[in-house]
């Protein structure tokens, strides 16, 4: 195998400009992940706040009920199935697949992020809420200025795990014939009939992305921890 390393390398990456598959695949993977993360955080924040508000004040009963249905359905079915339902059924006539994938992964991630935010909000001592309210802040202001910043700091590691999981989950995009990173490796494999190099390359690229993401979050965590010196 090592003997013909350079030959294999040439075959899988250089010949016919096959490296472009990987570059374009990575681009697609990153775009889907980035926007799905943003969508997931927005959905998760809204759902998490609704659920924790219900738990703390028993208000928003109907919204809370709708949110629990959303959580049950999304967390109870595989993301690949959700992706295919959205692509083949809900947007059956859609041309552009990337927004479909962003939507599917964003909605999926939102459910997990919501539970992360909810647990983060619930972990903040009731005394913080009371101190805020006693100064004259209303519930929303207290959440925004006092509870949420602390909750966010507490859930950052869990959020990071969710993003890393999401980055890897997008590898099922091939199911709707999107050429993401995994699909790119698969295409090259099917052309060259040599699985080793393309798959190892795909794995290595994912790994590097995850390591970079992990480091970035570490720095952010350290900065947010200033108040605990």
């Amino acid at each position: 195998m090592w003997g013909n390393f350079s030959e294999q390398f040439y075959l899988n990456f250089i010949q016919d400009d096959r490296w472009k598959y990987f570059v374009n695949g990575l681009k697609v993977t990153l775009i889907i992940t980035l926007f799905a993360v943003l969508l997931g955080v927005v959905i998760g924040l809204i759902v998490g706040v609704i659920r924790s508000t219900y738990e703390k004040t028993h208000k928003l009963k109907i919204l809370n009920f709708l949110c629990s249905i959303y959580l049950t359905v999304i967390r109870g079915t595989p993301v690949v199935v959700q992706l295919m339902i959205i692509y083949y059924i809900i947007f059956a006539n859609a041309r552009n697949k990337i927004p479909i994938a962003i939507l599917a992964f964003g909605i999926n991630s939102g459910a997990y992020v919501a539970e992360i935010f909810r647990s983060g909000i619930m972990s903040i001592d009731q005394g913080q809420l009371e101190a805020g309210r006693s100064l004259g802040f209303n519930y929303r202001q207290t959440m925004w200025y006092i509870v949420m910043p602390q909750a966010f700091k507490n859930v950052l590691p869990a959020l990071c795990n969710e993003f890393i999981a999401l980055l890897k989950e997008t590898s099922v995009s091939g199911y709707i014939a999107l050429q993401d990173l995994t699909k790119a490796g698969d295409i090259v494999r099917s052309r060259t009939f040599s699985p080793f190099m393309p798959l190892m390359a795909v794995a290595a690229i994912y790994l590097v992305c995850v390591v970079i993401l992990t480091q970035g979050v570490k720095i952010l965590e350290r900065r947010l921890r200033q108040s605990e010196r």
Binding site: D125, G127, Q128, A131, G132, I146, Q150, S227, E228
Partner: peptide
Amino acid sequence: QFNLFPHM
């Protein structure tokens, strides 16, 4: 319990 805001 004081309840100062620890992040500020």
